[in-house]
Design a protein around this nucleic acid. Structure first.
Length: 557
RNA sequence: GGGCUGGUAGCUCAGUUAGGCAGAGCGUCUGGCUUUUAACCAGACGGUCGGGGGUUCAAGUCCCUCCCAGCCCGCCA
């Protein structure tokens, strides 16, 4: 990799002539194009197969979605280039439940504590494959099925066509039979190769873990292999997991190749072989352990070409690592309460190599960035690199490329969310110039969808946009001077002035009555929002029904 | 201790593959009537590109070295 090639000494000079046009041909603004280049360079069979996968433990959080979304963009680029693409996602559900999750998500994606389900039933199932454990919510056929359904639902919400594959089924169908047989037949080679990566691998190591016929747990002690019969003999011994031990039952039995699983280091390359995987993204935790050994095993044990790899950095949430045990997680469903799907897709379209923080308190920043990205696609932003990125990525981020969309700035949408009155929202947005007579109703409707989301954000964050126009007169306690000033302001408003004029008059009135400016604003915010602060008061009042504002300023019910 | 990936304005990030003037948005400040109240407009401020060394006419970009963060180097996935 790190070789210099002095023989190409004057080749770079050709590039120095810049601006001949075809320098751009292989200079993409979008990482997915570069990955697609690598895949095409291998001349893959059709359909091109793109895979992701996770072990179904606990909650499917936003980080898990890298496994689907990163592949999605590559899939879309390849489809655009005329390839047939199959995007699959393996639920690695033959893995044993190793410890109790702290949090679970119900079928709607709501996060619930372990206390809300039958935790005892889960505890008794430690060591068993996820597909052999009942759904804690009692709705689907297993713990694994519940989890897979959640992921699938999230993929649907984001409009990503992904084929869910149960790893357990790959064994049960017999798809894995040739791989297991091959690995066991070449157990010496397998040991030799994996031994380069794991010191624990000794001459007794057998790369197969049967499921105990008696207690149903994954076991680690294989005593004999019978390739002709296609079985292994085993003893169900204790399994050490971190600080804990999951007890084995001592049963001695015989298992077929379908009644057990390969250890992960072999299983992963095995999936590549069985599914014919051409590309797979994985988190940085795999970059140094699983990937090098997986590549080696693929090439030197299974004799297949490993997929094009891509390492993605992890997200943090509000500056902290995603952690279901610490409760620092967010799901796709939760994000879609706050953002349009295209904004979330945009987040995943950004450079995977950069660790990104999703700061919920500054979602407005993310949405602003998306809006700018969108405008860049339509050539409205003077930023060459952003435009280059947008030209490639934007069509895959939105459901449909349309130029007539109107995007209200997120914080402005939050201001509109201070009232429930939809007509008033439209009126305010119109006055600010976001809509005009030519804006189609559909575009108005679509733009207003953001108001609901920004409103939920303001409430969830309880930030400076979390004010609510009060329908009823709030309780108040004002000085006589303030009351007199409010009456005068009411008279002014009654004369039908616009918001800007009202804003000016607020200052004038306060000054005339010798009231502290802050006190007068506070009185206004009390009457209209039952709060100490709020949005630009005069402009806001200018949008409201005049009679309502006058009555409220006069403290009438 | 060894390895991988990052570190660019207060914040979020482009730019690094192929060396060519240090960039954007947001925030901040100032102005937009004699107005501190979060939505508008204009302008300004804002940087030892993590530190240091080297190569080069020229380095955020290439090389060496050090610092910081996350991850991997037991098992498991």
């Amino acid at each position: 990799m790190a070789t210099n090639d002095p023989s190409r000494g004057d080749a770079p000079a050709a590039d120095a002539t810049d601006g001949d046009g075809d320098a751009d041909a292989n200079h993409h603004g979008f990482w997915a194009d570069e990955v697609a280049d690598e895949i095409e360079a291998r001349d893959p069979d059709e359909p091109v197969v793109i895979k992701g996968g996770v072990s179904p433990s606990g909650v499917a959080h936003l980080g898990n979605f890298n496994e689907i979304m990163r592949g999605y963009f590559v899939a879309e680029v390849l489809r655009e280039r005329g390839h047939e693409v199959r995007q699959v996602f393996t639920s690695d559900d033959k893995d044993p439940l190793r410890k109790l999750p702290r949090k679970l998500a119900d079928a709607d994606g709501n996060i619930v504590g372990l206390g809300e389900v039958d935790a005892g039933a889960l505890g008794r199932n430690l060591g068993k494959p996820y597909t052999s454990i009942p759904d804690p919510f009692g709705e689907t056929e297993s713990y694994a099925a519940h989890f897979a359904a959640l992921l699938k639902a999230d993929a649907d919400r984001l409009g990503v066509p992904v084929e869910m594959i149960s790893n357990t089924e790959l064994y049960e169908n017999g798809d894995f039979d040739p791989v297991v047989e091959h690995v066991l037949e070449h157990a010496d080679t397998a040991r030799e190769v994996l031994g380069e990566y794991q010191s624990k691998v000794d001459e007794d190591y057998v790369p197969f873990n049967p499921v105990c016929a008696e207690c149903g747990k994954i076991t680690e002690t294989v005593t004999d292999i019978d390739l002709d019969a296609g079985t292994v003999d085993y003893v169900c011994t204790d399994m050490t997991v971190g600080d804990n031990t999951i007890d084995g039952c001592g049963h001695e039995g015989t298992a077929t190749f379908r009644e057990g699983k390969l250890p992960w280091r072999f299983e992963w390359p095995g999936q590549w072989q069985v599914l014919g995987v051409d590309f797979e993204p994985f988190g940085k935790d795999h970059a140094e352990g699983s990937w090098p050994s997986g590549k080696d095993i693929a090439e030197n044990v299974l004799g297949i070409e490993p997929p094009v790899p891509m390492v993605y950095e992890w997200f943090t949430l509000n500056g902290e690592a995603l952690s279901s045990s610490a409760g620092n997680i967010v799901t796709v469903a939760e994000m879609l309460d706050l953002l349009e799907p295209e904004v979330l897709r945009y987040f995943f379209a950004l450079n995977p190599r950069k660790a990104r923080d999703l700061d919920l308190t500054r979602l407005d920043q993310l949405v602003d960035d998306f809006d700018r990205f969108e405008r860049a696609y339509f050539g409205e932003v003077d930023d060459e690199s952003l435009t280059r990125f947008a030209e490639r990525a934007y069509p895959f981020v939105v459901d449909e490329v349309r130029e007539d969309r109107v995007r209200l700035p997120y914080t402005f949408a939050a201001v509109l969310g201070m009232t429930d009155d939809e007509d008033l929202r439209v009126k305010m947005a119109r006055n600010e110039g976001f809509f005009d007579e030519d804006t189609p109703d559909e575009a108005v409707e679509e733009a207003l969808g953001r108001v609901e989301r920004a409103r939920r954000w303001a409430e969830k964050m309880d930030n400076q946009y979390n004010y609510r126009l009060q329908v009823d007169l709030p309780a108040f306690d004002f000085d006589p001077a303030v009351e007199a000033a409010l009456d005068e302001l009411a008279d002014f408003v009654e004369e039908n002035h616009d918001g800007e004029a009202i804003q000016g008059e607020i200052y004038e009135t306060a000054r005339r009555h010798g009231i502290e400016m802050g006190d007068f604003f506070a009185a206004g915010y009390r009457l209209f929002f039952d709060a100490e602060q709020g949005p630009r008061l005069g402009e806001f009042l200018g949008e409201l029904e005049r009679d309502f504002v006058v009555a409220r300023l006069r403290r009438e019910d």
